[in-house]
Structures are given as C-alpha cells and as structure tokens.
Design a protein around this nucleic acid. Structure first.
Lengths: 346, 346
DNA sequence: GTGAAAGCGCTAACAC
DNA sequence: GTGTTAGCGCTTTCAC
C-alpha cells in the first residue's frame, strides 16, 4: 500500500548483517542476538521506516492471524454485539477478523466460505443457513476449524449453543406466574432452529402448568421473510396484531418470538388503543438494546450476545493449538429473564 | 486451515505439465492454453481438491484483495449500515473487508492502522478520532490509500463527507416553519465535528429566520461520553430533559443532536407526562432504523449510511487504479428531512 | 552468535 | 503454446 517498502534485505544491508539475523530480532523470535547487533538492526529498521510484510511470514510459516465471521446481516441488531465479542477476543490473541454478510443466501455463504479458505484464515465462526449443512459438514470433516452458533447443526462440530427452549419456557412461565391463562404466541414462520426452540419452550411451559394449548392463540405468519429486510420482524408483529385482535375473548398476554416482533406487536397494539401492559402483557426474546428504549420497556429473555461472540472466538483460537483433535466442544449458554415494564400481573 | 493442501506443483505433476501452465489456467489469466491441456489441469485440480493459496499469489503480485474499515464501535447503531455498504461494494469488486473497532481509543486505532499496513491491505476506510490526525496525515502522505468519513480531517485526503450544518439547518427550519419559536437544542458535548456541525446548522437557521438565540435553550452536557457505552446518548437525552423542564416558559420544540439522544428525550418527556408532539415537538438526526419503531415515530434527518459506506469502498478501490495520483477526491452527501409523527404545527 | 541458502505457493519473464 | 526459472519477503535449518 505504501510505495516501495523496505524489506529485511534492505535492513541487513544497512546494518551490515544477514537477513537471518534481522528476521531474528524483528520477529521477536527469542533467538539470541548480541545486544549491539540487535540495536544496529533496530536502528536500521527505524531509519528505513520498515513495515514487516506479513504475507512473507505467513507464506513461510503457513499461519495467518485471521479468522472470519459469517453472519446473515450486520444491520440486524442481533449481530453487532456478537461480532464485537468476536473481534475483542480475536484482538486479545493477536488475530484480525474478516466480516462476511451472507444475507442468508446459500450461494453467497458458500462463496464466502471458499474465499476464506483461499485466504488461509485460521478458522471461521458462522451462523449458517440450513441449506448449507452438507457443505459445512464436509468442510468440518476436511479439518476446517469452524465454530457454529445461532443455528442447529446436525453434525459434530464446535459450537456455541443457546437454550432457546428454556428461554421460551422462562418467558411463558413468567406470564403464567403473573396469572395469565390465555397467552398468544406471535412469530414469523418457524423456519429457523431458534424460532422452533422458542415455540417449543412456549408449549412446554403451557403443558407444565397444565394450560390448554389453544391453536387459535398461535399466530404464526406463513409468509417467509424477505431477504435483507431487517424490519420484517417488526412489521410482522404489527401485522399479526390484527389477527390477534380478532380473537374472541381476547388473550391477556402475548409472547413474541423475538424483540423486533415484540416491538412491532406493542406498536400495533397501541395503534388500536390497546394498552401495554394494562390490557395486554407482552414479552419478547433476545434483549437487543432497543428493547429498553421503547415504551414500555420490554420484558424479555436475555441472550448473552457479546459473550457468545467472545466465547466463539476464544474457542476457535484455542482449538488451533490441538489441530488434529477430533473432539468437538459445545458450549451451551443459558437464557435469563429480564423483567421490565411490558408485563404485569393479571 | 485444511491438512496438507495440494499446490500447483502437485497438479502439474498429476496433469503432466508445468506449474506455469497450471497457474495460467487456474488463475484465469487469459493466457492461451490448448483446450485439451486445460481440461487435464482442471481435472487434476478437482481430483486433488485444490484450493489456491492466495498468500502465494499475493506475495508475488504484491496485491492483496483486502480493505479495512475502522470505526468506533459496530454496536453503535449508526455503523452497521455503513459497514454493510462497504462490504457490498467490496464484494462486488472482489475484495474482502477486515473489521476494526477502535472504541475511540487513539492507541487502539493506531495499532489497527499499523496492523493493517503489515497485512498489506489495499486501503483503509476510517472514521478516525481527532487526536490521531497527525498520524493519519502521515500515512496519507506516505501514499497509503485512505478514505475518511464521519469526521473532519484537516488535511488533503479522499473522503466521504456529510453536510451536518445543512442537516442541522433543515431540522431547525422544519420546526420554525411549523410555527415554533422557542426551540431547544439538546446534545452531548460538542467534541465531534458532527455535533459541532449540527449545532452550527441550528444557529444558522435561527439567525436566518430572525429568531433569538437563547442560551438558556441550549442544553449541552459537559460530561464526556464514557468509552464503549452505546447507550450514553440515550441516557444523556433523558438527563437533559430534566434541565429542559426547568426552563420557565417552556419551549415548544426540541432539536436533539442525534436519534439516540432524541429517543432518550422522548422517553424522558413521557416520564414526566409531557406529550410528544402535542406538548413538545422533537426532531432527531441520523435516521437510525429504530427511530421509526418508537412512539411516536421520530422526525429526523436522514444520513445515507449504506450509500456512504458503499461510496467509500467504491472510491477507495477505484483509487487503486491510479495509485500515484495526488488529487484527492471528496464526495459530499446531502441530508434529507424525514417527517414523521414527533413534530407538529404549534 | 551469525550467515548462507533453501523454500513456503505462486506468477511472470523469458526461452524455446 | 509450453516449460524453465527467478523471485515476491520472510523464516529456519544447517554449518561454521
């Protein structure tokens, strides 16, 4: 990127020594070099404004210091914290991170995976889409260092998982303990592991507390999410509220599959003059930071996003030490209930 | 990352040809190779499950396909769209992007800059902090390919700029045209070019429409933002509302320096029973996506974030063609007023 | 302690 | 059209 970079060869010449020695001092190899010579090298490097070219080193050592993170879309408010966690952990270990937005597009995702392989990244953290399971699996079996999260992978693999079912259970249980008996579930289509898990938790809680599962209260849109529309979940919430309001003997609570949906739900409710939480309690899922900035602040399930990102990167980089190791590690993260103002006793 | 990757040498052996030929067909050099041989090479490559090692090529050609984007914090809702724009443009041109969060920390920012240089990235898109102007300037003068945005740089440099003053003017003008005469300005300290510009626009509009500049209405916190607290602006909005409410003969409108602050302002106002927009009109700045999801949806100034990111990357990569070119390019983006429900005629 | 030299995987003269 | 070969910038044996 700069003009004509100085190389260790230039430094060697200037310091009247060999490239071997220069390399030894400049790469902090710990290899013994006489202090006086070392100083000469350092000075020469400074004089020449030397910037090491990592490409040379990496080609030789076959070890880059890059990892990639592949996510659906960084402008979905769920992902920035994760990516930040990844980056922080990576930086601590001297790694850089390549950002890849897949837009949930199978071809794009595969293209990125291939591209990252060519770049010799040391590993990949990925929230993949289910269609690519076979491809991913093959990569893993070929020895690629991969950590999956935010999805269900059907094959052995390092992963950071999250207990969606328990989260769904906690949310529903909270409403039940508040005295609610008719609790609606509002969601986009259950096309993802996360949504399925949350729904399962909802059912489980109802069963556990011996409440009827009423099909009428399960409002799941069958229209699939448009690609690249971060606002879809929100609009979906608004839309399904209309169906909700048509239910005779209106439920007193709503559990939305995620915060974006819940925010839409609250907005929709308000627009029809229905008060939250006075008329209807609402709980969300994810605890994206917006949820405490809306009115009323949203009761929701915390998913430790930053920590998950950090753990994913830490796990990934730690695995590098024992490359051949066939044992895969799974770290399971737990949900917590965050009670704010959108729910209240019946 | 995989075990023992096949190299062009292996392919040459298998296809009974030379590495030169293999390279020619595999790198799509356009160099003529007989069809039959080409097929043999392709087959061999496939059979060996060949993945090119970009490090080799890049070391040879001295051209990586990487760019870096350095921003304060990806979890600040202002940046994801920008980064997405950068990535999309980069991908279209065959580039990958390295993400660097500087946390507005001068040392970290410089460390990243250095680190990226070592990695031989082709260029850097940066929202820098003012303390590092000298360092940045030197990089630029050393021939580094840099595009700055979201800041005021005091030296010649490629940049994507945004007319904050005009934005501030538009927002204030909107309020004035609605009949408001007492318009408060609420902001975090004017330590950044953007905030300064917005404030200047506010003053300019008042002057232009011959309204008094009343110091009492200018509510600027002097507490500096805590590092790494994306919620600070929001809380700042809430806090300053208290001062706002103490103003005798309360103003009928508030212009907040950005959306996060505005959302805090609205929240604060509500908590004191003040209605928006019935009692007080509020306008924000930035048009982050949350602003249309709050109640009432926020009137604000649109900053074309995605486009700015995309343009920055396009500009950066285009500049690569004429490396030596000393002419720097500045692209100025214009604000637009987005009228929603948080403002109304007096 | 130090240096000569090989070589990581690739491209690009250059020769044929 | 094809092959030989030098070399990108670096690390690392190996010999001294």
């Amino acid at each position: 990127m700069a003009r004509k970079n100085a190389t260790i060869y230039d430094i060697a010449k200037l310091a009247k020594t060999s490239t071997a020695t220069v390399s030894r001092v400049l790469s902090n190899s710990g290899y013994p070099v006489k202090e006086e010579l070392r100083q000469r090298v350092l000075e020469a490097a400074k004089k020449l404004n030397y910037t090491p070219n990592l490409l040379g080193r990496q080609l030789k050592t076959k070890e880059t210091r890059d990892i990639a993170v592949i996510i659906p879309n960084i402008s979905n408010p769920f992902y920035p914290s994760i990516v930040l966690g990844v980056e922080d952990a990576a930086r601590e270990k001297g790694y850089n991170v390549l950002l890849c937005d897949s837009y949930r597009n199978p071809q794009l995702e595969i293209a990125y995976l291939n591209s990252m392989a060519k770049k010799q990244v040391r590993g990949i953290i990925i929230s993949s889409i289910s269609q690519n399971q076979r491809f991913l699996k093959e990569l893993v079996s070929r020895g690629f260092n991969i950590v999956a999260f935010d999805q269900n992978v059907t094959f052995p693999c390092n992963r950071i998982s999250f207990d969606y079912v328990k989260g769904g259970f906690l949310a529903t249980e909270h409403l039940i303990k508040l005295g609610h008996k008719k609790i609606a579930f509002i969601s986009a289509p259950l096309t993802r592991a996360s949504r399925k898990g949350v729904f399962e938790g909802y059912l489980k809680a109802l069963k556990h507390y011996k409440l009827d599962v009423n099909k009428e209260l399960i409002l799941i849109n069958d229209k699939e999410q448009e690609i690249n529309n971060e606002i879809y979940e929100y609009e979906n919430g608004i839309e399904l509220v209309k169906r909700f309001l048509k239910i005779k003997d209106m439920p007193t609570a709503i559990f939305a599959v995620n915060d974006m949906t819940a925010i839409g739900v609250i907005q929709g409710l308000k627009s029809f003059g229905v008060k939250v939480p006075d008329d209807v309690s609402v709980v969300g899922f994810d605890n994206i930071f917006i949820s405490e900035m809306i009115e009323p602040p949203l009761t929701t399930i915390e998913q430790p996003k930053y920590e998950m990102g950090k753990l994913a990167a830490t796990l990934l980089i730690d695995r590098l030490q024992n490359e051949g190791d066939k044992k895969y590690i799974e770290i399971n993260m737990s949900p917590t209930l965050i009670i704010r103002k959108s729910t209240k006793p019946l």
